[in-house]
Write a protein that binds this DNA or RNA. Structure first.
Length: 296
DNA sequence: CTCCAGGGATGAT
DNA sequence: ATCATCCATGGA
């Protein structure tokens, strides 16, 4: 039942915990999640992936094991912030997510921490998705646009969506009705795709760029959230006074180039992990200080 | 307890 | 065209 493929230049944990996808959970030595409506277990052992629930082809495609990662990383600009992130995030890949699932979760992401987006995703799945099992482990698929569209704003709010419920419902109805065909947008240019996505309720430039990057494989798309904006201002414009969103966007588009989305994800993950690490460090130091002072 | 989070829509300059 | 404010919720 368990199959295995070689996966070079790949770090499963970094990929799944970098804040690009929100429905994978740690189980035993690996992760459980859903790919194409099927429950999947994946575990990394060195340069090998052990998995069950999907075909080798599906695993290869979902985790984008065909992306030429060393070439992509080599195309990043050569500067201190980028080099640190490149080194820290070795093996992190931008995966190929289902379009609706990605769009829906990022509509829910506004002004939410990664941990809470995961929680919202889980509540949506448990309430509206379909129950399934991998071995004896129970899980739920992400609800389709039809399933979300058939619910109500009140029900959605019970998933801790807050003001985002109205936007998710409105967008789900546009997708479910066929008014918007997410698959058909694949043929559009980056500019046109972004414009169409931004027409959906709850989708602005940032969410549109996330969906373009994580579901449409537009590897240039460069989402600018509070973390990335902080990195850009601190590391690339340390003493710029007035710097608006348009100027930041123009800079990122030309500076980070064809794989800007990858560069962005590396900067994002490195910055987030750095902060979490300093928090743990602070806690450890304060704990030690208390111990020492008590001894005295 | 307070602070803040992978923002967007809206209305005021 | 840019800028400020509000929007719910809960983790840290």
């Amino acid at each position: 039942m368990t199959k295995e493929i070689s996966a070079r230049d790949f770090d499963l944990a970094k990929t799944l915990e970098s804040g690009q996808v929100f429905h994978w959970d740690k189980l035993d030595a690996g992760f459980v999640g859903v790919i194409g409506g099927q429950p999947v277990y994946v575990e990394q052992r060195g340069e090998c992936l052990l998995f069950s629930g999907a075909s080798e082809k599906e695993i290869n495609h979902y985790f984008a094991l065909d992306h030429p990662l060393s070439e992509i990383c080599a195309s990043f600009p050569d500067d201190a912030a980028m080099n640190a992130a490149r080194s820290f995030c070795r093996g992190l890949r931008i995966i190929r997510q289902p379009k609706w699932e990605c769009l829906a979760t990022f509509i829910c992401s506004s002004m939410k921490q990664v941990a809470h987006i995961r929680q919202i995703s889980q509540k949506l799945r448990e309430r509206f998705g379909e129950r399934c099992k991998i071995d004896s482990h129970v899980m739920f698929t992400f609800p389709s646009a039809d399933q979300v569209a058939a619910s109500s704003e009140k029900e959605l709010r019970q998933c801790a969506l807050g003001y985002r419920a109205k936007n998710l419902l409105a967008t789900a109805r546009q997708v479910a009705s066929g008014n918007v065909d997410l698959d058909a947008l694949t043929t559009l240019s980056d500019v046109d795709l972004r414009r169409r996505l931004c027409q959906l309720p709850g989708v602005g430039a940032k969410v549109a760029n996330c969906v373009m990057l994580f579901a449409y494989e537009r590897l240039r798309a460069f989402p600018i959230d509070v973390w990335i904006e902080r990195v850009l201002r601190e590391r690339y414009f340390p003493r710029a006074r007035k710097l608006n969103a348009g100027q930041l966007r123009a800079f990122t588009e030309k500076y980070f180039g064809d794989h800007g989305g990858y560069a962005q994800q590396y900067l994002f993950h490195h910055a987030r992990m750095g902060k979490i690490k300093t928090k743990i460090e602070r806690k450890r130091r304060s704990g030690r200080f208390v111990t020492v002072s008590r001894v005295k």
